[in-house]
Simulated assay, not measured.
Amino acid sequence: MAKTTFWNIIISTLEKEQKPLSPKEIWKKANDYKLLSDFTTTGKTPWATIGAYCYTDIQRAGESSTIIQTNERPAEFYLRKHIEKLDLDKISKEKDKEEIKNEKEIAKKYKERDLHCLLSAFTFTNQHFKANTKTIFHENSSKGTKGQNEWLHPDIVGVYFPYQDYKHETLEIQNHLNISSIKLFSFELKINLNFTNLRQYYFQAVSNSSWANEGYLVILNIDDDPALLDEIRRLNNAFGIGIVKLNAENVYESEILFPSKINEIIDWDTVNRLVVENKNFSDFLKSITEDCKLGKIKSEYDKILDIDELTKFIIDKGIS
């Protein structure tokens, strides 16, 4: 019997599924159909190789290719010989419904706010942030005209204090020169990021994070379509909001995929509006002020769970 190859997997899976699939969906469905029993690969992202096979076939064979690309964002592929049998509009609508259904199923298990303690643990220990965080409860905000405060509040705010990094003499001279090494961070958290919700989520982060020194969109799961990462890179270059990818298996291995643009000047008008609108944000600034006066961190910020507590929380919530 011939050995299973990536090409066999692509063709067999698309024949069985009878609809366009992304490279990652091809890999998942191939596993569901038990097409991988005698297949081995050392790569950590075999779907990336599947995508490369599809693109190569299209580029080399042109109009005679076995594979045809039916969608760009996200990239989806199908068999050219069956393409006329498909109703692509109907399939697209069904996929949208499936995504909504999947998000609702996830929401039954855990909420975006359940990710806060993961982010707090990561930013507290990560060398870039070294931040203490504070959750901003939107429900505590003033009730204004509908839409007035939409996309105003970040999910979590953070602060970096230099007290452990700088000597007393350095801090003293900074104080005399009216220079501060304190940094303010703003974070918008989401569970899943894909082409369907990218622009909404990204510009929500743009709207509620522009006041801080650094603003981030934090995601648990990101579709690894190369085209999606290219679009995120374009948005990052244009608008400066960074991207953090949370790792539920090991929170401390979460990573900054795209760094935030650093704003040297705080947007104090927006800060003041947040103080007026939300008590949590007001308390956050009061805590920073008190700690600055003391020259040490004494105020209460979000609790940092230890490794065992964090592991239990993730398992209990079914976060993945």
Rank of each mutant, 00 (worst) to 15 (best):
Ala131His: 03
Ala131Asp: 03
Ala131Arg: 00
Asn132Val: 07
Asn132Lys: 06
Asn132Ser: 09
Thr133Ser: 03
Thr133Phe: 03
Lys134Pro: 07
Lys134Val: 00
Lys134Trp: 00
Lys134Ser: 00
Thr135Ile: 04
Thr135Lys: 05
Thr135Leu: 03
Thr135Asp: 02
Ile136Gly: 00
Ile136Asn: 00
Ile136Phe: 00
Ile136Pro: 02
Phe137Asp: 13
His138Gln: 09
His138Glu: 10
Glu139Val: 13
Glu139Met: 14
Glu139Leu: 13
Glu139Gly: 09
Glu139Tyr: 12
Glu139Trp: 11
Asn140Phe: 11
Asn140His: 13
Asn140Tyr: 12
Asn140Arg: 13
Asn140Asp: 11
Ser141Gly: 15
Ser141Met: 07
Ser141Val: 04
Ser142Arg: 11
Ser142Tyr: 10
Ser142Asn: 12
Ser142Ile: 10
Ser142Lys: 13
Lys143Ile: 15
Lys143Glu: 08
Gly144Ile: 01
Gly144Ala: 09
Thr145Val: 15
Thr145Gln: 15
Thr145Arg: 13
Lys146Ser: 12
Lys146Pro: 08
Lys146Val: 13
Gly147Phe: 08
Gly147Met: 10
Gly147Asn: 04
Gly147Ile: 06
Gly147Lys: 09
Gln148Phe: 15
Gln148His: 14
Asn149Cys: 02
Asn149Ile: 00
Asn149Tyr: 10
Asn149Gly: 06
Asn149Leu: 10
Asn149Lys: 07
Glu150Val: 14
Trp151Lys: 09
Trp151Cys: 02
Trp151Leu: 13
Leu152Tyr: 05
Leu152Ile: 00
Leu152Asp: 05
Leu152Phe: 12
His153Pro: 04
His153Gly: 03
His153Cys: 05
Asp155Arg: 06
Asp155His: 02
Asp155Phe: 01
Ile156Lys: 00
Val157Met: 03
Val157Ala: 01
Gly158Trp: 06
Gly158Ala: 05
Val159Arg: 06
Val159Thr: 00
Tyr160Met: 01
Tyr160Thr: 03
Tyr160Asp: 01
Phe161Thr: 01
Phe161Arg: 01
Pro162Ile: 06
Pro162Glu: 05
Pro162Cys: 02
Tyr163Met: 04
Tyr163Thr: 09
Tyr163Trp: 09
Gln164Ala: 13
Gln164His: 14
Gln164Leu: 12
Asp165Tyr: 03
Asp165Gly: 04
Asp165Pro: 05
Asp165Ser: 14
Tyr166Phe: 14
Tyr166Ser: 11
Tyr166Cys: 06
His168Met: 08
Glu169Phe: 15
Glu169Pro: 07
Thr170Asn: 11
Thr170Met: 08
Leu171Gln: 08
Glu172Tyr: 14
Ile173Pro: 02
Ile173Arg: 10
Ile173Leu: 13
Ile173Asp: 06
Ile173Thr: 13
Ile173Met: 08
Ile173Gly: 03
